[in-house]
Simulated scan of single mutants.
Amino acid sequence: MSLPTPSVQLYTLVEEFRADPARSLDRLAAIGLQHVEAFDFVGRPAEIRAALDASGLTAPTGHAPLLSDELWTPDGSIPTPEPEAVLEAAAVVGLTTVIDPFVEPVRWSTVDGVNEIADRLNAVADLAATYGLSVGYHNHAQEFLLDIDGRSALEHVVARTDERIAIELDLFWALTGGQDVPALVQRLGSRLLAVHVKDGFVPAENPFGVDADRTVTRHLDQRRPGEGHVPLVEAMRATDAVRWAVIEYDQSPGDVFDDIAASYAFLLEKGLAA
């Protein structure tokens, strides 16, 4: 059985990375990581690539909006860059797969909305191929609220899209969405390129309803792996298709670099990554 390779989503240390990319990456390298998942790279791809090269790290995957015309931020909605701009920046940084990290809950609430997401994924995959890149999608919980012909909206999208389109399954958010996570991992099978490894205490009620407050992630009770509700070991052993085990905290419970180091140690000690 092949094991995934550890990585870390730079959103986990978003403030530290924005303030001092070089020092942040050097600290990740000192932990033992060799790869990161890029975040907020479209506006400064050359700077990020230089910092990666200097630290000896690579960013094979990265998050950027590909499926939305506007992006919600705490300061209000802003226009997203054109897909061509995202893909051009991704090529500079050295990505191989660009993953859309968030499509608003309301678009997951109807069959037409879900079909439109799938169709846009297919179209952007065609465009990405002209840049030598692949694309994928990263879930939260809203992708599991709607049932379409006996399966979740996320799995409907998987069935409706080209097999080259990857899924990055956030294990915490899949559980928050009410999923049997190991069973979901098995069903997604070869479409899984990566998983987000995070743990925490899942709210009793789904926090990502269609009309939910989009600041919910500020109030999450997330913990180090093995300290919460998420069946990480069982889920990650349910398939051998995953290429990247991406460490992430939406909210780090303590010192962010110590928490990343604890996640990295968990993956190695449990034999879940190599």
Rank of each mutant, 00 (worst) to 15 (best):
32 G>T: 08
51 A>Q: 12
63 H>W: 03
55 S>V: 09
76 G>W: 04
41 F>D: 02
77 S>P: 13
104 E>I: 00
30 A>E: 14
36 V>I: 15
57 L>H: 10
64 A>V: 03
29 A>N: 08
66 L>V: 03
78 I>E: 13
50 A>K: 12
32 G>M: 10
29 A>Y: 08
78 I>N: 07
87 L>R: 05
52 L>P: 03
91 A>P: 08
23 R>F: 04
74 P>L: 06
19 A>D: 14
71 L>Y: 06
33 L>P: 03
95 L>C: 09
42 V>K: 02
20 D>N: 15
102 F>C: 01
95 L>G: 03
34 Q>L: 11
82 E>R: 14
22 A>V: 15
28 L>H: 03
97 T>E: 06
89 A>W: 02
59 A>F: 06
35 H>L: 13
27 R>C: 08
84 E>S: 14
17 F>Y: 15
67 L>K: 01
54 A>H: 10
38 A>M: 06
38 A>Q: 04
48 I>R: 07
22 A>P: 08
60 P>D: 09
19 A>F: 06
51 A>I: 09
42 V>D: 01
27 R>I: 07
87 L>Y: 04
48 I>G: 04
82 E>A: 15
35 H>P: 09
82 E>F: 07
55 S>H: 07
54 A>F: 11
89 A>S: 12
58 T>P: 12
34 Q>F: 05
99 I>N: 00
37 E>T: 07
30 A>I: 07
24 S>N: 08
47 E>C: 09
89 A>Y: 03
18 R>E: 15
18 R>W: 13
101 P>D: 03
82 E>P: 09
65 P>I: 02
70 E>L: 10
102 F>R: 00
78 I>H: 09
77 S>V: 11
98 V>H: 00
55 S>C: 08
79 P>R: 06
41 F>L: 07
79 P>G: 06
83 P>Q: 07
71 L>W: 10
105 P>C: 02
103 V>K: 01
35 H>I: 09
77 S>F: 14
61 T>A: 10
46 A>T: 15
81 P>Y: 07
28 L>S: 04
61 T>W: 04
72 W>G: 00
24 S>R: 03
23 R>K: 13
35 H>Q: 14
93 V>L: 09
78 I>K: 12
95 L>Q: 12
102 F>V: 00
28 L>K: 03
49 R>E: 09
88 E>D: 15
81 P>G: 08
52 L>V: 06
17 F>V: 09
66 L>N: 01
96 T>M: 11
93 V>W: 00
77 S>L: 11
67 L>A: 01
105 P>L: 02
52 L>E: 03
26 D>R: 15
68 S>Q: 09
59 A>I: 05
58 T>G: 14
73 T>I: 08
83 P>D: 05
56 G>P: 07
46 A>Q: 15
64 A>Q: 00
19 A>N: 13
19 A>H: 11
64 A>D: 02
35 H>R: 14
41 F>E: 00
69 D>E: 15
42 V>N: 02
46 A>S: 12
27 R>K: 14
53 D>M: 10
18 R>M: 13
32 G>I: 10
20 D>W: 05
104 E>P: 01
89 A>I: 05
89 A>R: 03
25 L>G: 03
94 G>W: 06
